[in-house]
Structure formats: C-alpha cells, structure tokens
Write a protein that binds this DNA or RNA. Structure first.
Length: 287
DNA sequence: CCCCGAACCTGACAGC
DNA sequence: TGCTGTCAGGTTCGGG
C-alpha cells in the first residue's frame, strides 16, 4: 500500500510523538512479523526487556527507522496493508487483544500483528491484514548495509538526470519497471509510477537506455513534483492507507490516471500488466 | 542481465 | 444470499 508520500506522512507524525519514549516490551501476535537480527542474541521477545530510548525516527525509501539509545534500530516496512497507530493506555489494549475483544476501539483488533509498549503506558500498534509487513530489530551499525541496497532518495539533490542517465546506461528494462526498482530510486510504488509517467508524457514500455536527455529531465521533474505534491496532501488514501491518527490523505483527489477510465484530456486509458502490476497510461498523450 | 511467475496473506468486489 | 473467481498500493526468490 504505502509508497514514499504515505510513509513520509506517517514518519512525520511519529517524529512528533515517539522521540524520548522508552520502549519496554515488544509483543508479537502474528509469528514472523518481528525478526531479530542474529547479531542481537540478547533480545528475547518473550521476556520484558529494557530496549532503550527512541532517539530518532526517519524514513529511507519505504522503510521507517526507529533509532534507540541502546545501539540498535528497528526497521519497519508496511508492505501492502500495514498501518501504525499510536494509542494511550497500552495495558488495556493488550488485554483486549489477548481476549480478542473489541470494546471501545474503532479499529480492528484482529489484524494487530505486533505492539510496542512504552514506559508511559502508551503504545504503537502495528496493524496489517495481509501480514506482509515486517519489523526488524538490527544493530545500529547494520543500518548502513540497508541504505546501500537502496537507490537515491527521489527528492534529494543527488537524484537528477545525470544520475538517472548513468543508472539507465545500457539497461534494456522498461521505464515502468525501472521506477519500481528500489535499487535505482527508493520509494516509488505502482500508483505514483503511473502518475509520474503520465505527467512526463512517457510510455511505461519505453526502454530506459533509449531515453533522450530532455526526456530524462522531464522524468526527474515529474518524479519530484508528483511526490512533493502527494506529501503536501499527506499521501493517497485509496483503500487501506490511513495516517497515524487514522485520518486520510487527499492525493487520491488529484490522481490523473491510476484507476481511471480516461485521462484529463478525455482520451481512453489503456490498462496493461507490466511486471505483474496494473499499469494505466494514455496511448495518445504518452510517447 | 533480464523476464516471468510464484510465494507470502486477507478482504473487497463483481458476476452468477 | 451465497458461492466463486479476480484483484489489490510490495518484495524476494528461483528458474529459464
């Protein structure tokens, strides 16, 4: 579900309330959700452990990072349907989950896969119907390894047409596939890939090594403006995505092609499978 | 290097 | 109403 703008929105909200909190317990309700690095043998999810103080919360690509004073980090990936919700009175929440009750809560307890309990009796709930989302506990020194696997941040100055030209050199892959490749650029998913390609008037099937300099520049501009506008809208809420406070983003009101029948100029859109993903494009506007 | 399909899951929705 | 099939915003793996 969530792509860069949605994850960025969530991270900004977490930055408001998480730093300074002391994590005391991590509970896992769906096996395999929380994975502890083999380099952290001292951490046992079955016991109450002092995990330290949250010093920093940030985003890289679609990953959310919580950095702790005790020298390790938690990496969260929401995948398709993951959601994070901050709740007060953590102790009563836990009882409800264990008893599978849904007393006064508007959210669905049955999809809670893990909870982080803090010393002030608040908690961060990880809710994920499809169970694809993952939470990793790693030593802080391993963060760099994860960063190295990701391409540049699309909104950074390093991400420009020179970089893309280099990355696309002699690559015989389609433009659509390249935008979804997190090693090339980090954070773009299927919805924004469709929107970006419509905005820069390029067909998803274009082979990246054949792009002209001008097309690369237009592509980079479309990537940056689309993502920035979506962040300003707090993301796109199509079905599952909600912000930490359960409010919705509003960028779905500005989508031009994803899920549409025709483009803003009235041409019928084509829907093809690219890389196994629904791809909406305008055969008239996009070249 | 590149492509494709499968796998991980549940829920929503269309059609009969 | 209820069954069945299809689809869903992500990532990783193996095989060709």
């Amino acid at each position: 579900m969530p792509e860069l703008p949605e994850v960025e929105t969530i991270v900004r909200e977490l930055q408001e309330c998480l730093p300074g909190k002391q994590l005391t317990v991590i509970e896992e309700f769906y096996p395999g959700t929380v994975r502890v690095s083999s380099k952290l043998p001292s951490i046992n999810l079955n016991h109450c452990v002092f995990y330290g103080i949250i010093e920093e919360v940030f985003r890289r690509g679609k990953y959310i990072y919580l950095v702790f004073s005790s020298g390790y980090a938690i990496v969260i990936h929401l995948r398709m349907t993951g959601k994070l919700v901050i709740l007060s009175r953590a102790s009563s929440i836990k009882d409800n989950i264990v008893n599978n009750q849904n007393n006064d809560h508007s959210y669905d307890l049955k999809h809670i896969r893990a909870t982080f309990i803090f010393s002030d009796d608040t908690s961060l709930i990880f809710n994920d119907p499809r169970t694809f989302g993952k939470i990793d506990l790693i030593p802080f020194c391993d963060l760099e390894l994860l960063f190295d696997k990701l391409g540049y941040e699309p909104l950074s100055s390093e991400f420009n047409s020179d970089y893309l030209g280099e990355a696309f050199l002699e690559r015989r892959i389609s433009l659509k596939k390249s935008l979804l490749n997190q090693n090339i650029v980090a954070g773009i998913g299927n919805i924004y890939a469709n929107e970006i390609l419509y905005r820069c008037k390029l067909l998803p099937s274009r082979i990246v090594s054949n792009l002209l300099e001008e097309e690369l520049i237009n592509l980079v501009t479309a990537i940056k403006t689309t993502l920035a506008e979506a962040i300003d809208c707090n993301g796109t809420s199509i079905s599952d995505y909600r912000r930490v406070d359960d409010k919705q983003g509003t960028f779905q009101n500005f989508l031009q092609v994803y899920g549409k029948k025709s483009c803003p100029l009235g041409h019928s859109l084509s829907v093809d499978k690219f890389d196994g993903r629904s791809t909406y494009y305008c055969p008239v506007c996009q070249k």
